[in-house]
Simulated assay, not measured.
Amino acid sequence: MNIIRSFVLFILAGLCEIGGGYLIWQWLKADKPAWYGLTGGIILILYGVVATWQTASFGRVYAAYGGIFIILSVLWAWKIDGFKPDKYDIIGALIALLGACIIVYAPRK
C-alpha cells in the first residue's frame, strides 16, 4: 500500500508542478490574464507541500520525481497542448520512469 500511496503523491505533485507552470506560461507567453499567473503560483506552492508528504528522504524523492515529471510532462503536452510524442519520446519517458522506480522502490537493507 505504501508504494501506491507514494506513486499517487508523485503524480499529484507532478500535476501541481506542471499545471502551475503551464498557467504561468499561459499568462506570460499567451497573454492570458494575471489571475492565470497567480493561480499558477499558488499551485506551484502546493507542489512543494505535496512533495513533503513522501516518506523517503528529500534527495531520493527529488531524484525520483525527475523521472515521474518527465513522463507526466509528455502526457500533459500530448493531452493538453496538442504535442504528439514519437516513439523516442515514449521510450525516453519510460526509461526515466523505470529509473525513478528503482531509486525509490528498490529494496534496501
Results as ranks from 00 to 15, higher is better:
72 L>F: 08
50 V>L: 02
58 F>S: 08
63 A>E: 03
61 V>Y: 06
10 F>C: 02
28 L>F: 11
28 L>T: 13
49 V>G: 04
5 R>P: 01
104 V>I: 11
45 I>E: 01
107 P>V: 09
93 A>Q: 01
20 G>S: 04
14 G>N: 04
15 L>D: 03
28 L>D: 06
89 D>L: 12
18 I>E: 02
73 S>R: 00
32 K>S: 12
100 A>D: 04
59 G>M: 06
26 Q>G: 05
2 N>G: 14
10 F>R: 10
58 F>N: 08
63 A>V: 06
87 K>D: 01
59 G>R: 14
49 V>L: 09
109 K>A: 02
105 Y>Q: 09
5 R>D: 10
42 I>L: 12
47 Y>C: 05
31 D>E: 15
12 L>T: 12
89 D>K: 15
50 V>Y: 01
93 A>M: 02
72 L>N: 04
26 Q>I: 05
80 I>H: 01
12 L>W: 09
33 P>L: 08
36 Y>W: 15
37 G>F: 11
66 G>H: 09
60 R>V: 13
88 Y>I: 13
45 I>C: 04
82 G>M: 07
20 G>D: 02
41 G>D: 12
30 A>L: 14
22 Y>Q: 12
52 T>F: 05
90 I>R: 03
46 L>M: 14
84 K>I: 10
89 D>A: 14
10 F>Y: 14
8 V>T: 07
98 L>N: 07
59 G>Q: 11
79 K>A: 07
25 W>G: 00
97 L>P: 05
48 G>Q: 04
12 L>F: 12
11 I>P: 01
100 A>E: 04
3 I>F: 10
32 K>M: 15
14 G>L: 07
32 K>R: 15
23 L>P: 06
35 W>A: 05
6 S>T: 15
51 A>H: 11
66 G>M: 07
75 L>N: 04
44 L>P: 03
13 A>N: 02
17 E>Y: 11
13 A>D: 01
47 Y>P: 00
43 I>F: 05
69 F>V: 09
95 I>Q: 03
54 Q>H: 14
4 I>D: 11
38 L>N: 06
30 A>D: 12
1 M>E: 10
35 W>K: 08
40 G>K: 04
38 L>S: 08
60 R>Q: 13
105 Y>I: 08
79 K>E: 13
35 W>N: 06
86 D>C: 01
32 K>F: 14
7 F>V: 09
